[in-house]
């Protein structure tokens, strides 16, 4: 199979994902650098099969780009299907989320057809804040991810190639997503899965895994088979990604009047008893003001904003999340239409 087309695809691989404190406080996966590089090679193989000629990739200082560079040299010597030419973006590296922002900005400015993202909920959130209407292919390499797919990179690359080559249209291959906008202390953040107001005073190690610290949770979707804070909502009242509303959960004290208590997987292997005072739908466009003492706001499971007593935290659900490539649907279309025939 060999096609040729001028489309470019971007690749963002977060070198920091999969290494936070949940390796210690839970049984979270370790996602080594070399496996991220391997996944990128599998994506390149799939893109190459559709003749995608050019890939832009975010550089890094931890060895992902270096490993891919070595693999490209080796691949030239042995493979019959060429990989796209890989351009490591010429940009400063700060080893922070700024790198993701800058790389996505460059990719969007140069008109990529799609961006393949390897990371956790946090990485996808960062990409979503900058990618505009460029669709993203999600690949989970983080901890307890609700937003990205945990799937084989080859098929994800395959679906991306079908979209980038124009064989499956954007309307057919992609899905819209909700998001939650949170504003506090002059900052505005976007969550793709959940916003949680916690009693933790400081951002510290970022992750949230202690149920007694939970104050209020807002989710864009709630899947009962997920892991993380959104699983709490999913076990109360499932909300699909394609439903317009989200869910709001108010935590209570164990033994309090009307408090429902149940077990939820708030991190991999970490099943905790949570106490919920009440929950209800979160309507799109409705601004919700949170009343709380001092604490932190966690966005997609990571503490991001510290706020003091008297500060205002406001959240709002809308439908302006990123468009994501539906790998299963795209490949189903390709199969039924014979788009993979050679």
């Amino acid at each position: 199979m060999s096609y040729s087309n001028p489309a470019s695809v971007g690749i963002i691989a977060n070198p920091a994902s999969g290494r936070d404190i949940r390796r210690l406080t839970a049984k979270a996966t370790v996602f080594p650098t070399i496996e991220k590089a391997n996944m990128i090679q599998r994506v390149l193989g799939a893109l190459g099969a559709f003749g995608v000629g050019h890939v832009m990739m975010m550089p890094d200082m931890t060895g992902i780009a270096a490993a891919v560079e070595r693999a490209i040299v080796a691949h030239r010597a042995e493979a019959h299907i060429p990989w796209p030419a890989v351009e490591f973006l010429n940009m400063d590296i700060s080893e922070s989320v700024t790198d993701t922002f800058n790389a996505v900005d460059l990719m969007v400015a140069r008109g990529v057809a799609a961006i393949v993202v390897l990371g956790g909920d946090g990485t996808h959130r960062a990409v979503a804040m900058r990618c505009g209407d460029v669709p993203i292919t999600t690949l989970s390499t983080g901890t307890n991810n609700a937003f990205p797919d945990l799937r084989e990179a080859t098929t994800a690359g395959f679906a991306t190639g079908l979209l980038a080559s124009g064989r499956v249209s954007r309307a057919e291959a992609t899905l819209a997503n909700k998001r939650i906008v949170v504003e506090a202390c002059g900052r505005c953040e976007v969550a793709l899965v959940d916003v949680c107001v916690t009693r933790h005073m400081h951002i510290a190690s970022r992750a949230v895994w202690q149920p007694e610290a939970l104050e209020e949770l807002f989710v864009a979707f709630a899947e009962p088979d997920s892991v993380g804070l959104s699983s709490i909502a999913g076990l109360l009242q499932p909300v699909r990604r394609d439903e317009p509303h989200g869910l709001r959960v108010r935590f209570g004290r164990a033994g309090g009047s009307g408090v429902r208590r149940f077990v939820a997987p708030i991190a991999p292997g970490l099943l905790e008893r949570v106490s919920v005072a009440k929950h209800g739908l979160m309507r799109p466009g409705e601004r919700v003001r949170v009343v709380s003492g001092a604490g932190t706001v966690a966005v997609d499971g990571e503490r991001e904003i510290e706020f003091g007593r008297g500060d205002t935290v406001e959240v709002m659900l809308d439908s302006n999340g990123p468009r994501t490539i539906d790998v299963a649907r795209t490949l189903h279309i390709a199969a039924t239409r014979g788009l993979l025939d050679v």
């Binding site: 920091a16 290494r19 936070d20 404190i21 390796r23 210690l24 951002i203 510290a204 970022r206």
Partner: peptide
């Protein structure tokens, strides 16, 4: 094995 921001006392 965990990576910690060594500039941040709280972390």
């Amino acid at each position: 094995g965990v990576i910690v921001d060594g500039f941040d006392f709280f972390a």
